[in-house]
Amino acid sequence: MAIDWGDAPAWSALGLSAVGTIIPISSARSSRASARSAEISAQAGVRQAAAAEEQVAIARESLRLAGGQSASSHAPTEIEAVQEALAQEPPYVAWWIEFKGHYLYALCNIGTATARNVEIDESRIGRGCSFKGQLKTLQMAPGQERRFKITYWWPSQRPRELWVRWQGHPEWKAIQVPLKG
């Protein structure tokens, strides 16, 4: 088959096929580079966590040694207070929203402290959405959950987050609303 140098459609098809070959090759290279970067980032995170644990161990050891040296001084109560504070984890409130099925969700307190006067900011739920639930001014112990419904109509979308605040935490905190379980 002879090539007709004046055949424009054939030359444009050849050019497009060359571009169609170069794009996937470039995409594969970018994908490999991204995977290498993710691996390096994960390794750095592991090293950072190990360094933080080592710093805590060093701080506890230095407090232990300082407590032994100052047994004759007048300040052992301060060191004991710091040691006690390091040994005990402070209570905290943490939230999780669980999908229960067909517009039904559960707000769960997954922390270690009781949350009092819990409020949901219904104004941030969005247009076309309605919120139904008994979540105003309640108390939630650790491990407790309260169920609620969020319904929405087309073309509006399901809200992606719920804004919550409670006694001792006056700022609103966003909690991700799962799409499905």
Rank of each mutant, 00 (worst) to 15 (best):
L138T: 05
P142M: 11
L138F: 03
V93R: 03
T112C: 05
L135T: 10
G101D: 10
F99N: 13
Q144D: 13
G101K: 12
L138S: 01
L135A: 06
I110H: 02
I110F: 00
G143Q: 10
G101C: 07
E98M: 06
K100A: 11
W96G: 01
C129N: 15
T137D: 15
H102C: 00
F131C: 02
R146F: 12
W96N: 10
H102I: 12
I97K: 08
K136H: 12
Q134A: 11
E122N: 07
M140W: 02
F131A: 01
T114E: 14
E119V: 08
T112I: 10
K132Q: 15
R124I: 00
E145H: 09
A113L: 00
V93L: 06
I97A: 05
L135V: 10
R127A: 12
I110C: 01
G133D: 08
I120G: 04
Y103W: 14
V93F: 06
N117V: 07
F131V: 03
F99V: 01
C108H: 10
Y105A: 07
T137Q: 14
G101W: 12
G128W: 04
T137W: 09
K136Q: 14
Y105P: 02
R127C: 00
E122M: 00
R146H: 14
A106W: 01
G126A: 03
A106S: 15
V118D: 09
V118C: 13
I125R: 01
I97V: 15
L135S: 09
L104I: 12
R147Y: 05
K100G: 12
A141W: 05
G133E: 07
R127S: 09
R147N: 14
A113M: 00
I125M: 11
G128R: 02
A141K: 14
V93K: 00
F99A: 15
W96I: 04
C108M: 05
A141V: 08
Y103E: 10
A141G: 03
D121I: 01
A115G: 10
F131E: 02
W96M: 12
G126F: 05
G126M: 00
L138G: 04
M140T: 04
